[in-house]
């Protein structure tokens, strides 16, 4: 992260951003319905509760968080679709909600299943509409289409009716349509949802390639951890409208999971008590055992185990990222705020 570089202003600046909704509540059943018919109970929901961060040009940042955490709401405010209740947002120097032409020509928002393609026509027709609306010169349009066709393998699907495309094919077209005007800032909300693994990888590669070629800034939300780990060095974790972590992916792993797993295959039986001496025994099945050890003592303890136990084989693993995020949300998140690493704290300012 280059947050110490003050010569360029960040592309995205967010300070104390807030979005509050009013929702109605109702008890179940006919009686509840009648009661709420007469008198309606309203509650305020803080979908996004005073979040702050900055993102530099060319950075790819992953938004993580459980469903309803406020990721999508935040993204939509950055794209100018939702008007914030309060707070400061600038994207490329623009106030998103004003939806100025220069702003809109510089951004894009891809939302998983929401289509901008015309359902009953070939995707190419929708591309032509976008070319006209974004006033893309013909030669630039041709060049972009050539590049996209190559990377996304659009050959042969552009002239088929959109309704007849498979989900993956449609998503590729959506993505191409959304990036046709070569935006500098990309908001990707679950771009790979519902796609098979191959297609996920292809879309991921495309986004990485696009980022390299145009130095585009990318914010990505995804349910698939692989999307995020493959693309984003920096992670912002949002839970209940708050940022609970902002920093390097590796720092996140370190903060939330300060241990590593030493996976042992023993050549003869050893008691649980003896294994627990080295660390926390997390699983044990016959001759196979997992021992969780503190990260900074991993090599010392692993060496001792090798020397003192009848070990046939040993591997050392980071805990899976899904599990790490899971523990972050499981009650410990308030402490995690205090544990934000120095770099992230700077970013949050």
């Amino acid at each position: 992260m280059s947050h110490t570089d003050h010569s360029t202003t960040p592309v995205i600046q967010v300070r104390d951003l807030e979005k509050v909704y009013t929702v109605h509540e109702k008890e179940p059943g006919l009686r509840g319905s009648l009661a709420s018919f007469v008198r309606r109970r309203k509650t305020l929901v803080r979908a996004v509760d005073r979040i702050s961060f900055e993102i530099d040009a060319g950075q790819m940042v992953g938004f993580l968080g459980p469903n309803g955490a406020g990721k999508t709401t935040a993204l939509k405010m950055l794209a100018g679709l939702l008007h914030p209740t309060d707070g400061f947002v600038r994207v490329g120097g623009h106030v998103p909600k004003e939806r100025r032409t220069e702003f809109l020509k510089n951004i894009t928002l891809v939302m998983g299943q929401k289509q901008q393609l015309l359902w009953d026509l070939p995707a190419l027709d929708s591309f032509l509409v976008n070319q006209a609306i974004y006033e893309i010169p013909n030669d630039e349009y041709q060049a972009t289409m050539r590049e996209f066709s190559e990377i996304l393998e659009l050959e042969g699907i552009l002239k088929k009716q959109v309704r007849k495309l498979s989900l993956g094919e449609r998503m590729k077209c959506e993505l191409a349509a959304a990036l046709l005007h070569r935006p500098r800032v990309l908001f990707l909300d679950e771009p790979t949802i519902g796609l098979d693994v191959n297609m996920q990888v292809r879309i991921r590669e495309f986004v990485a390639e696009y980022n390299r070629r145009f130095n585009a800034t990318v914010i990505l939300t995804s349910h698939y951890m692989a999307d995020v780990t493959a693309l984003c060095k920096r992670i912002i974790v949002i839970d209940k409208g708050h940022i609970v972590f902002d920093g390097d992916l590796s720092a996140l792993v370190e903060e939330a999971a300060p241990g590593k797993t030493v996976r042992l295959e023993l050549s003869e039986n050893v008691s649980d008590e003896r294994l627990s001496f080295y660390g926390k025994l997390t699983s044990r099945e016959g001759l196979f055992a997992d021992v969780l050890v503190p990260r900074n003592e991993t090599s010392r303890l692993a060496a001792r185990m090798l020397a003192e136990l009848p070990v046939a084989d040993v591997t050392i693993e980071d805990p899976p990222i899904e599990g790490v995020i899971g523990t972050l949300f499981a009650g410990t998140n308030r402490q995690a705020v205090d544990a934000v690493p120095a770099g992230a704290e700077q970013a949050a300012r």
């Binding site: 809109l104 020509k105 928002l109 901008q116 974004y134």
Partner: peptide, 12 residues
């Protein structure tokens, strides 16, 4: 349904 969103993103 939120289908207005893609239309709002365009400069038109």
């Amino acid at each position: 349904q939120g289908h207005l969103s893609p239309k709002l993103l365009r400069p038109l």
